[in-house]
Amino acid sequence: MNASSALGAVAPSPLARRNPTVKLAILFIVSLVLLVVFDPVTPALLYLLGLAAVLGFARLPMRTIVLAHLPFVGFALGILVVNALSRPGEVLVDLPPIRVTVEGLLVGSALALRTMAIGILSIGFIGTTDPVALMTSLHQHARLSARVTFAVLAGYRMLQQLPREWQVIRQAQSVRTPFRENGATRFGISEFGRAAFTLLVVSLRRGERMSQSLESRGLGLGARTVWRPVPLGPADWLLLAGTLGLLALVIAGVGTLGLGLGPGILF
């Protein structure tokens, strides 16, 4: 059972029950490995596997999954197009000013699919992980110090209040700025900057008071207990081993078929 399930932020699912630190480690390892993979096949396979895992074990609403895809699909398309158009090599299409090269398409699609693969795993991670449980687990299982853990959690609480604070600041400042022709108030770079500065000042003030509160509650007294520990069990180790095994299998398989490419292709 998830330590912070009482907070209700995450729906129960097989993935939600797994240890957050383990999930973060998997995400991190897969991302690092993908960093040196420059063929399109490996990330494509990993994306499909990740998608299957998210659909099967994360129990996220379809709408959330689709919406969460939007930012990195856009990003991936950008990478694909830029690489296809701006990389020297064997010309595939030549319609000046547009010139698409084979190398460009290859590298571009590899990088775009890498973005997609990391993206789907991130969705699976973020969608099934309660941030508070993650911090608690990092404290327990990754030796993150108590002071950092609870400073971040206090920051999380502040973050929850920021949208409201931001809105109030925008309102409070816009009432002072003159109307333009169309009756609206201007909100350009300097107004954004001013509001951002106010948000910073107000938040730093609150942060100083929060640190006093945390200290007055005894944060940093020394050895501490953990009331409701986040569990770390055999199933979590199995998840870790299974995922890494699968990753190795994919890479080995693609390599055996002669489709694998390393960073050398860039140069």
Binding site: V152, P163, A196, L199, L204, S211, Q212, L214
Partner: peptide, 27 residues
């Protein structure tokens, strides 16, 4: 000190939020 750590977190939170607000418009 704890105060320093909280300040660093607050900077991260505020700038994270502002970047996020910008990225929403940017994407």
């Amino acid at each position: 000190t704890l105060k320093d750590l909280v300040l660093i977190v607050v900077l991260g939170v505020v700038f994270g939020f502002l970047y996020w607000a910008l990225v929403q418009a940017w994407t």
